[in-house]
């Protein structure tokens, strides 16, 4: 069933890709092939392979229980927040929080999670910024 849904999504993707390809405005200085042909070939392969996936699906993959899916989803949200907060809060603070969250969700006890978070963040800051001179996000406190 998963493969059938996946295949249908693939076909829809291919159709959407065709429409987007047809909508490309051609420049008057075009070569003999133009900017549309290659995408249309790709769309055909995408659509055909999706169709085969729909018609001949593999065995059902092992999906996690709902609780674990929520877990993955929550960590995605945290990582998005991390990306958005990085320029606002600065590298060290934002990274400490994100790393601590991940460590906690992977089964660390709260104290260990905090230590992992702070350790990762300060460690990366020292190695990559102070030693190697990589520019990291600067927060209001300059780190």
């Amino acid at each position: 069933m998963s493969d059938r849904i996946f295949g249908v999504v693939g076909i829809l993707l291919a159709i959407g890709y065709v429409f987007a390809a047809l909508a490309i405005e051609e420049s008057f200085l075009s070569d003999a092939v133009g900017p549309k042909a290659f995408p249309l070939i790709i769309a055909a392969i995408l659509g055909l392979s999706s169709l085969v996936i729909v018609l001949r699906p593999d065995a059902e993959p092992h999906w996690p229980a709902l609780g674990r899916l929520v877990e993955v989803f929550a960590s995605v949200v945290v990582l998005i927040l991390y990306a958005e907060m990085l320029p606002v809060a600065g590298f060290v603070v934002a990274t400490a929080f994100a790393a601590a969250y991940l460590a906690w969700r992977l089964g660390s006890a709260p104290l260990e999670a905090v230590l992992v978070g702070v350790g990762t963040s300060v460690g990366i800051y020292v190695i990559f910024h102070l030693v190697l001179g990589l520019s990291l996000a600067r927060g209001p406190w300059g780190f």
Binding site: T95, A98, L102, L106, V116, T120, F128, L136
Partner: peptide, 15 residues
């Protein structure tokens, strides 16, 4: 343990 390793991997990727 991967509960320590994986956060480091994630953060290094972001950096």
């Amino acid at each position: 343990p991967s509960r320590i390793l994986m956060p480091i991997v994630a953060m290094v990727s972001f950096v």
